[in-house]
């Protein structure tokens, strides 16, 4: 039984730091039972979550940090991304999901992408007031029923 391992990254709200998330995802998920497609989906989703956090949550304010917590468990990876913003009504958003192929829509694809690529996507109000998105993906074996 593998003990949970947690990694925390805090970075200022600047696009220039998003690139390192790809490297960090690759390092943290190394050795876990994910296919290359699944690894790509995790990286894409984490970058989307952090893009939303710095763009929409923190309004690109350099004084506001984005906090990403990676929890590596035996059967899954859980990533929590928190911003300092005012938040939004996720339930309301889910009722009005934009068509991502609508070329006239400039926004709204990030959540759609995360929802499609991860096993679980949840938005909650963080304890400190900002918005927290929780992403979860099961490993290939973690998703199997009755696995011993």
């Amino acid at each position: 039984m593998m003990a949970e391992e947690t990694f925390v990254l805090e970075f200022p709200s600047s696009y220039k730091w998003l690139n390192m998330l790809d490297l960090m995802c690759a390092e943290i998920t190394a050795g876990m039972n994910f296919s290359q497609d699944a690894l790509n989906e995790i990286s894409i989703s984490v970058i989307e979550a952090c893009t939303n956090a710095l763009e929409h949550g923190n309004k690109c304010c350099a004084d506001c940090d984005v906090r990403a917590v990676f929890r590596r468990l035996e059967d899954r990876i859980v990533i929590e991304v928190t911003d300092c913003g005012e938040g939004f009504d996720f339930a309301d958003y889910l009722l009005h999901i934009p068509d991502p192929s609508d070329i006239h829509k400039k926004r709204g694809r990030g959540i759609f992408i995360m929802n499609a690529m991860m096993d679980k996507l949840l938005y909650v109000q963080s304890e400190k007031g900002g918005m927290k998105v929780i992403l979860e993906k099961m490993t290939d074996r973690g998703g199997e029923e009755g696995d011993d």
Binding site: I44, F112, A116
Partner: peptide, 16 residues
């Protein structure tokens, strides 16, 4: 690339 292709596919922008 495969990564970009997967984003286009999920958002159906591969049809555009």
């Amino acid at each position: 690339s495969k990564k970009i292709e997967s984003i286009l596919y999920v958002t159906k922008l591969n049809l555009i």
